[in-house]
């Protein structure tokens, strides 16, 4: 089976409802792209933090990590990175036009967050891009296939951009089990059917994959992306009763 990233072009737009895991997914994807073979003419990977909704656990928290792996992190400059202002880093439009840059745009939560992307829609016009909605069916507003489809419609309307893929991210954080992943993934597959979109891949925490030793890619016929958690401190899970 193809790897998840080989299905994607130069410009990748990651969206999803608030708390869907899109920022962790974007980070992991950007790091994988930077570590893998350079695609087409792209010489550099850049991750743009467009999350104007959620002021915490944002891509900008991982700036040092990204830069140490050769990923350019485009975040609001200076003190503004710590603010709850509807702003994003400079030069995004130029990056969209630059054929040497493989671009991951991490767009803020739900329909409101996607409004930020709407501002970029004119810049993206004429460029081919992969719109991905990350879905965790264990989050309150995306628990059923119908709710996921409604969320996708809202995001597309607000952002004025089209989705091409759903990324399945079924998890209950540290309480994730193999059964949780299987049941949740089935909900995402059903949502994808309703929307007429393919499922790009299945995201599962690396430590669970190591523990379970199950070939989910073959079983579920979907590329599996092992995920590392970067935006939440490890002690939080260690002290969860």
């Amino acid at each position: 089976m193809d790897s998840l990233e080989s299905r994607l072009g130069r410009i990748i737009v990651v969206t999803g409802s608030f708390g869907s895991g899109k920022s962790e997914f974007s980070l992991n994807l950007a790091l994988r792209l930077a570590a893998g073979a350079p695609a087409a003419s792209a010489r550099e990977v850049a991750l743009v933090d467009l999350d104007i909704v959620n002021p915490y656990f944002r891509t900008r928290e991982a700036r040092a990590l990204l830069e140490s792996h050769g990923v350019r992190a485009v975040v609001p400059p200076g003190d503004l990175a710590y603010a709850d202002l509807p702003i994003y880093g400079p030069g995004v439009a130029a990056l969209i036009r630059n054929p040497a840059v493989r671009l991951v745009l991490d767009v803020g939560g739900d329909e409101m967050g996607a409004t930020a992307l709407g501002g970029l829609a004119p810049d993206l016009e004429g460029f081919d891009y992969d719109g991905i909605m990350v879905v965790n069916p264990y989050r309150p507003f995306t628990r059923t296939a119908r709710a996921i489809a409604a969320m996708a419609a809202g995001i597309q309307e607000r952002s004025r951009l089209a989705l091409r893929w759903l990324e399945s991210n079924p998890n209950l954080g540290p309480h994730t089990t193999l059964d949780v992943v299987r049941r949740g993934h089935a909900v995402v597959v059903e949502a994808a059917r309703l929307l007429g979109l393919p499922v790009l891949g299945l995201t599962v925490r690396r430590r669970f994959l190591d523990e379970w030793q199950v070939d989910l890619a073959t079983e579920l016929q979907v590329p599996v992306m092992p995920l590392e958690i970067y935006l939440s401190p490890p002690w939080l899970e260690q002290t969860l009763d």
């Binding site: 708390g19 264990y138 989050r139 954080g173």
Partner: peptide, 13 residues
């Protein structure tokens, strides 16, 4: 059923 919630959402529910 268990679900994954943010603290603020949890207060509201």
């Amino acid at each position: 059923e268990p679900i994954l919630m943010k603290g603020n959402e949890a207060v509201a529910e």
